[in-house]
Design a protein around this nucleic acid. Structure first.
Lengths: 239, 239
DNA sequence: CAGTGGTCTAGACCACCCA
DNA sequence: GGGTGGTCTAGACCACTGC
């Protein structure tokens, strides 16, 4: 059955029907959608078409896919005011979610080129590179690389980095995030972040870069974060 | 030719090659890519596979499609600090781009539900609804709906709204944008915005909502903007 | 092991754009 | 009118998941 000329394409009709079921609560946050082949049978079409509908719902942040496990209805977005110096754990708790941060790797590394300029370093300077994964309600939603200056936080790797970095800074180094320069834009999920988050490489993501300053106005560290694009809403208040 | 087991899929290899050509400048901003069928021949594969590669490059903001005209290399992103009260025209000029704003429609309308609460209105209150399209270098990049309060700006529709709204507010009503509450997240392009921007419905987009206040701290208006997701970078400085 | 999603083939027809 | 992208069909094989 072709979509006749001038009409709305099938995949948009299917998308609308699925969207409707989600809006009406017939499919709730966390629910698994029927398998692609079941959807094919339901809507009497082929997988290519079904997958076009699913991809659009994914782009809209209504559903997400767990690699090879199927499609699920997305939970509500976490929201974040980047100008407030709150940390991830507090944020989650205020919004009724259960936070978790896991250190994937912590090591000394030469400064990556794209981080060199913001951190005002030379090509072969060394930094602490922390790779961490953030969860809300046991769903991995953010892959995070912290580039920290050994001059500011000597022996950083000796501490437990599975929690809030803010608190480690404050407790052991007497350093407080005070201001920052933040930039972000939609991008494609890079391979490493994709693998850690269990999403597919190249799918839409939200990239966030943050250059942090301490209470003395000195550069403190530089973060690069990749968020699942359905998991975050940014709120800024200039009052 | 199948991608043998355990190897990198073809579409990622093709994506990488195209990405490489763009990075090396063999394909420059604004250039048109070869047609999909030519790419099929070049990489010895089918359109489904090629289109997967192109979709990923699009998701990453490296290329964009002009409906039924082909694929083009994206220009650099405009950047915007939402906490600075600058307007679109100044922004473009500072970044060496040629701005243009076109009024698509201006009319009195009942307040849409999702705008009612932020504007502190009642269900059947009326507003001025402006629908505008913003261009940088003759490429439509932002579809914008302004919901303005008749109480603040009586007779707004009597003025020329093809330029900066900021300036109209200031010149004729002595009102200045002073603070705002801003929220945004990645979403799918809705039908109306898609049609105006000449992109396809459902493709990734960046949605931005802004509640503006005047110099007296009163609510002034509410904007909903849809940006091509490859055209904007947000920068916030909390110094 | 049955079924899933991930990837891919080799076509097709259509509306629309541009020359 | 030839070529483009937009949509769709009807299959296929694979690696992996979950039972």
């Amino acid at each position: 059955m072709k979509s006749p000329s001038g009409e709305i394409p099938q995949y948009l009709l299917i998308k609308a029907q699925l969207q409707d079921r989600i809006a009406r609560g017939a499919l709730k946050s966390g629910d698994k959608l029927p398998s692609e082949r079941e959807l094919c049978a339901l809507f009497n079409t082929t997988r290519v078409t079904i997958r076009e509908s699913l991809a659009q719902l994914e782009a809209g942040g209504l559903i997400w896919r767990a690699d090879r496990r199927g499609w699920f209805v997305s939970p509500d977005r976490l929201w974040l005011d980047p100008t407030q110096n709150t940390n991830f754990h507090k944020l989650c708790q205020e919004q009724g979610r259960t936070p978790k941060t896991v250190l994937l790797e912590g090591r000394v590394a030469p400064v990556p080129v794209e981080v060199m300029t913001p951190l005002a370093l030379q090509p072969f300077d060394q930094i602490y590179l922390l790779t961490r994964l953030r969860y809300a309600d046991d769903r991995a939603i953010c892959y995070c690389e912290n580039h920290c200056l050994p001059a500011r936080v000597p022996d950083l790797l000796g501490h437990d980095l599975n929690g809030s970095l803010t608190e480690v800074y404050q407790r052991y180094y007497d350093l407080v995030y005070t201001s920052m320069h933040l930039s972000f834009w939609p991008t494609a999920m890079p391979a490493q972040a994709a693998a850690a988050l269990g999403v597919m490489e190249g799918r839409p993501a939200l990239m966030l870069r943050r250059l942090n300053y301490d209470q003395h106005g000195r550069i403190l560290d530089f973060d690069i974060e990749y968020w699942r694009h359905d998991s975050l809403r940014i709120e800024v208040d200039t009052h």
